[in-house]
Amino acid sequence: MIHLLTSNWSEFISGFGWTLLSSVLALFFSLIIGSLFAILEVVPNKFLRIIGNIYVEIFRNIPLLVITMFFYLVIPLYIVKINGFTAGTIGLTIYTSAFIAETVRAGINSVDPGQMEAARGQGMTFWQAMRYIVLPQAFKYVIPPLGNQFVNLVKNSSVLAFVAGFDLMYQGNAIASQTFDTVNTYVIVGIFYLIITLPISYYMQHLEKKLA
C-alpha cells in the first residue's frame, strides 16, 4: 500500500487538491446561495416565498449526478463551454445549497416568533430584524446540521469523477484500472477523504460546544 501511494503520489495529491478546491468553492457558494433561499422562504412576500420553495424542492429532489450531467452536457450545448471540474462544482453547489436552505430555514423557524415581532414592533424592517436578531439566533440551531451538510458535500464531490473532474475519485479510478490493485487504491482514497471530513466534524462539534 505504501508503494502504491508513493508511486502514484502526484496523482493522489492532484486528485486530493481538486477535491479540496471543489469542496471549498461549493461550500462557500452553497452557504451563500442556501442562506439566501432560506430567507426567501420566510419573507412576508408570498411570490418570493414561492420562488424560494420551488428552487429548494426541485434541486433537493433530483439526484446530484443528474444535475451535474445537466451542467456538463446541456449547458455547453447552448450557452458556454465548461469543463468537468466547473460543471461538477456548479452541480455540487446547487444541490448542496438546496439542503442548506432547508437547514437554515428550519433554524430560522426555531427562533421564537416573538423575537421578530418585538423587532418589527420597534420599527425595524424585516431585513434589519433578520440581520440583528433572528439570524444570529438561528445560527446556533443551524451549526450541527450544517456540519453534516459540509461533510456530505465533501463526500458528494466524488460526483466529479463522472464528468472528468480530476478529483480524488477520478484519480482513484484511473490508478485502480492501471495497477489492478483496487482494494488498496480505494482504501487510500478513503483515507484522503477522511483527512478532509474528520477535521470538519471535529471543528463543528467544537463550535457547537462553544456556542451552547
Binding site: 421564537d112 440583528y132 439566533q137
Partner: peptide, 18 residues
C-alpha cells in the same frame, strides 16, 4: 415602520432580544 416608531409595545412574554 414610521408608525411603529411612535407606538411602543410590551408583550406578555417580554420578547427581549435573546
Amino acid at each position: 415602520n414610521r408608525i411603529r416608531r411612535d407606538v411602543g409595545m410590551v408583550f406578555q412574554h417580554f420578547n427581549l432580544y435573546a
